Amino acid sequence: MTLKVLILGHSFIRRFENFVSISSDHRVTPNLNLNSEELQIFYLGYGGASLAQIRAQGTRYVRNLRPDVVLLQAVSNDLCRRNTSVEDIFHELADFVIYFRDAEDVKKVVVLQTLHRIPPTRRIRFHVDTEWFNKIVDELNRRMSNYLQNVEGAAFFRLSGFWCPNNQRTAFLADGVHLNNQGNKKYYNNLRAVIVSLIKSINNDE
């Protein structure tokens, strides 16, 4: 059986799909250099989307595709809104995970850690206080990590290589939000690692 993996989310996913599609590096492929006879990877990313928009637009796609695994990178834009609490976003994200598992029968749902932002080095359209933003990112990540430890068929994955100042300076574009090529290579390695781990877990369960 060929496993289907859907990587779903906001502009990170749309930009990452473009990165893997045009890369000249033979080690970087849309299927993450994994066996395409055993695994198919699909991407669905919506630029600037909130979690509610991702859910509204992605649900039908999930229902038609019927993926075995969903990786979700989804709430960075929600956290920018000062009129929305971390508590609200946490509950909305947790509900989306349970929906995938129960209503759409997804075997494994993985919430990917929300990344910090860094101060931009060029003018951007929507300015966010990065110190404030990063504090609430940490709060949400902590809450999701703790919660998903007790949810069968779900997990929280911590992204590596993006947290110390030196790594951040080399991984992000001048907007301080999106990943550059070097950042996307790190993201690639993270996604590949979590998918390989999930394949082993699913095979052991069968």
Score class of each variant (00 low, 15 high):
residue 181 N to V: 00
residue 172 F to P: 12
residue 25 D to G: 14
residue 102 D to T: 08
residue 70 V to P: 14
residue 74 A to N: 05
residue 113 Q to C: 01
residue 144 M to A: 09
residue 51 L to K: 07
residue 140 L to C: 10
residue 1 M to A: 12
residue 61 Y to R: 11
residue 6 L to A: 01
residue 98 I to F: 02
residue 200 K to P: 01
residue 197 S to N: 06
residue 78 D to G: 12
residue 5 V to P: 11
residue 51 L to I: 01
residue 4 K to R: 06
residue 190 N to Y: 04
residue 110 V to R: 05
residue 158 R to S: 08
residue 55 R to E: 02
residue 166 N to V: 03
residue 69 V to M: 10
residue 9 G to Y: 13
residue 162 F to D: 03
residue 116 H to Y: 04
residue 88 D to M: 08
residue 124 I to S: 12
residue 108 K to T: 03
residue 191 L to S: 09
residue 132 W to P: 05
residue 166 N to K: 07
residue 192 R to F: 05
residue 82 R to T: 06
residue 149 Q to F: 02
residue 163 W to Q: 06
residue 163 W to K: 06
residue 31 N to S: 14
residue 2 T to I: 10
residue 197 S to I: 00
residue 202 I to N: 14
residue 116 H to A: 03
residue 16 F to D: 09
residue 123 R to K: 15
residue 148 L to E: 04
residue 9 G to C: 08
residue 26 H to Q: 15
residue 165 P to S: 13
residue 40 Q to H: 05
residue 135 K to W: 01
residue 147 Y to N: 07
residue 162 F to V: 03
residue 35 N to W: 07
residue 116 H to R: 06
residue 51 L to G: 13
residue 116 H to W: 04
residue 160 S to V: 07
residue 110 V to P: 07
residue 8 L to R: 09
residue 102 D to W: 00
residue 74 A to Y: 03
residue 171 A to T: 08
residue 203 N to A: 14
residue 186 K to C: 03
